[in-house]
Design a protein around this nucleic acid. Structure first.
Length: 309
DNA sequence: AAACCCTACAACCGCGCGCTG
DNA sequence: GCAGCGCGCGGTTGTAGGGTT
């Protein structure tokens, strides 16, 4: 037994609004307001429309403060940022964009922005455990970290030469750092999209590239996110660091191991990229400081778990 | 020129939530 | 506490128009 319909569908008009209907609704709302009751409004206004349809038409199209036209690059960045932070909460995202509606933002994301982001995906080159990275990209903070074992030329932990590592560092053609699970599971990617990534975004990426893992949680928050940043550089920052708790590596702060998930600590020590939200508080330098001071409501994403599907 | 495909976006739908009696 | 109601939200569908074959 479904919910009773909000109106008599047999007696209301559906489909595109005519200019006359637009004018009628606009005139009525501007003269009388909504009266706090959209259901009753169409009858009062002389419209053969469902109240919900009137509300939608007003909010998404007729409202005087609606901004029509293309989205700016700044709006793109804000949408990406907020989507990473809160997922598909379109109304919340739209509230940060004056003149934009949730429907606008949702449509824009689904039709353009998501594709725009995915188009930047680059072909990956997976390193084997014998590969080394260019010496110029060796993160000094990593090699300085006594808890992380490194090979002579690689910034990453040494591996057992007889068995492939369970977690692989990967560079793309532009030396952007990726982290993969057995060459399939990319959990961070592309220096042109550095920043925070929500599970929704990562799922999109994972589905696009056919990866076989997903992010399941972070250190201590139910809103998992993952960070990768290269500050727009074409090479790995010399202040980046990474550690993995496979058989060879441990980290004193990493105390939440589970049997079923591989775990990874990422401590990117460079300035946080992406000009997140271009807000006035973008002065953080490390993820920990970022998470706890500038944007306390955001998660500490220093830790990320990945788990095979 | 026609058929087909793709894209953008308007509109609809159903559900959850909060308010009220 | 509950039921009824309307609102708001996010997901989905419909459709117009432009581009391509």
């Amino acid at each position: 037994m479904g919910r009773a319909p909000c109106c008599d569908k047999a007696n209301v008009k559906r489909g595109p609004w005519s200019p006359e209907e637009d004018a009628t609704l606009k005139n009525y709302v501007e003269t009388h307001g909504t009266g706090g009751n959209w259901i009753a409004l169409p009858k009062k206004a002389g419209l053969r429309r469902c109240g919900k349809s009137c509300r939608l038409r007003w909010l998404n199209y007729l409202r005087p403060d609606i901004k029509h036209g293309g989205f700016t690059e700044e709006e793109d960045n804000i949408i990406c940022t907020l989507y990473a932070q809160m997922g598909s909460r379109w109304s919340a995202i739209a509230s940060k964009l004056p003149g934009r509606t949730d429907n606008d933002v949702k449509n824009y994301w689904n039709t353009k922005l998501k594709k725009k982001i995915m188009a930047r995906k680059v072909t990956l080159k997976t390193l084997t455990h014998n590969d080394t990275l260019p010496s110029t990209s060796t993160p000094s903070s990593l090699t300085n970290n006594q808890n992380v074992k490194t090979s002579q030329n690689s910034p990453f932990p040494s591996q057992n030469q007889n068995s492939p590592p369970s977690v692989l560092p990967v560079l793309d053609a532009n030396n952007a750092l990726f982290i993969t699970n057995n060459e399939k599971s990319i959990i961070s990617f592309d220096q042109t999209h550095h920043g925070l990534y929500s599970p929704q975004v990562m799922d999109d990426v994972v589905s696009q590239i056919g990866a076989s893992s997903r992010i399941i949680n972070n250190n201590n928050n139910n809103n998992p996110m993952l960070s990768l940043s290269q500050e727009g550089s074409s090479s790995i920052s010399d202040s980046s660091s990474i550690a993995m708790n496979n058989n060879n590596v441990s980290h004193p702060e990493q105390q939440h191991a589970s049997d079923e998930s591989m775990e990874m600590l990422m401590d990117f020590g460079f300035g946080f990229p992406f000009d997140f939200a271009n807000g006035p508080n973008c002065h953080y330098e490390r993820v920990g400081e970022f998470a706890t001071s500038s944007y306390p409501e955001w998660v500490d994403f220093s830790y990320a778990d990945i788990k095979p599907h």
